[in-house]
């Protein structure tokens, strides 16, 4: 009996406004769940864009192209001289720390590369084609300006192309994608906050007399707003949790599908089954594993702040 009275009292204190039965409140978790679902996808998208950008950059930054002109500026050097210039450069590259693989392209390979531009008769043009050397660099690559200077000394006219432009472009693309995903996150948060404000206003309207009575009994604005905000916060947290639960499988599948593009290991030919998918959950990018659980917490915080703000704004009509 006393226990029942105590629990009724506790409920009365927590719910000093009878909000449990307020109509506007019921759809709140549902809407917030949808928002949280979208937010989770946006987070995964941002994470994926970053990962993909890093991978592309790594690939592009890892290769250099070195061109050794056959003749330099000399009018008509013997073919043998070009060979030795190329060999000198190859030797120099192989001896450079930070260079992993040095591979001079053969004539056939070279004309294959040029065919789209020069047509199939490229060999017959008897142009003085430069020797081309493909270089793969290690993770901490060589000092490029120093290398350029040494190459110039070894064989004047040698050109080193570092793909820096492509790296910058890929970087820009990845950044833009991330920015879009972040903008989507911001938008979703704003929509969630607006929905909470609208629901709070509707509830205030239906509880007007109660709110005014509490105000008349000396309740502070914070006290009244806090009653609403706790409810909103709880509903939003619930919605956030549901949205996260709904989004998790989608994120896992998308991550698994994207894996071949971001991992160094070649893609398996078969699509992954359910068991394999579940096994990938702990291998989600760590940043994402940290970010996703913050969704319900963020939703709760947005719910609390939005409701507090809405109630306080409304209470300013009272003296």
């Amino acid at each position: 009996m006393a226990r029942r009275a105590a629990s009724r009292l506790a409920a009365g204190r927590l719910d000093g406004l009878g909000l449990r039965h307020a109509p506007g409140w019921r759809m709140l978790p549902l809407v917030v769940a949808a928002m949280a679902f979208l937010a989770a996808l946006a987070m995964a998208g941002a994470q994926g864009a970053a990962e993909l950008g890093r991978h592309w950059q790594r690939g592009a930054a890892a290769t250099l192209t070195v061109q050794v002109p056959r003749s330099g500026d000399a009018p008509s050097p013997p073919a043998a001289e070009g060979e030795t210039r190329r060999d000198r450069v190859v030797a120099l590259l192989r001896g450079t720390p930070g260079v992993a693989v040095v591979r001079p392209l053969g004539d056939a390979e070279l004309s294959d590369l040029l065919r789209p531009w020069l047509g199939s008769g490229a060999e017959k043009l008897s142009l003085p084609l430069p020797a081309v050397i493909a270089v793969t660099v290690a993770t901490d690559g060589p000092d490029l300006p120093a290398l350029t200077a040494r190459l110039e000394a070894a064989a004047p006219g040698t050109m080193l192309e570092s793909h820096g432009l492509w790296v910058r472009r890929l970087d820009l693309l990845a950044r833009s994608l991330r920015l879009c995903a972040l903008a989507a996150l911001g938008l979703v948060a704003a929509v969630a906050a607006s929905v909470i404000v609208v629901a709070t206003r509707a509830t205030l309207a239906s509880r007007r007399e109660v709110v005014e009575t509490l105000h008349g009994l000396g309740a502070t604005d914070f006290y009244v707003a806090d009653r609403f905000a706790r409810r909103a916060s709880r509903a939003a947290a619930l919605g956030g949790l549901a949205g996260l639960a709904a989004a998790l499988p989608v994120v896992v599948v998308l991550t698994a599908l994207a894996a071949p593009f971001v991992s160094a290991v070649p893609a398996e030919t078969a699509l992954p089954g359910l068991a394999e998918l579940l096994a990938t959950v702990p291998r989600l990018p760590p940043a994402l594993l940290w970010a996703l659980p913050t969704l319900p917490l963020t939703a709760a915080a947005i719910g609390y702040l939005a409701a507090q703000g809405a109630v306080r704004a409304w209470l300013r009509h009272l003296p």
């Binding site: 009878g18 502070t220 604005d221």
Partner: peptide, 25 residues
């Protein structure tokens, strides 16, 4: 003002009891 209102008791013509709370509450 809230602190002042708490030192003032008001009996309204229409009572204004909160319908979802017990008399005790």
């Amino acid at each position: 003002l809230p602190a002042m209102r708490r030192r003032i008791g008001m009996v309204f013509q229409d009572f204004r009891l909160l319908s979802h709370l017990s008399v005790f509450d």
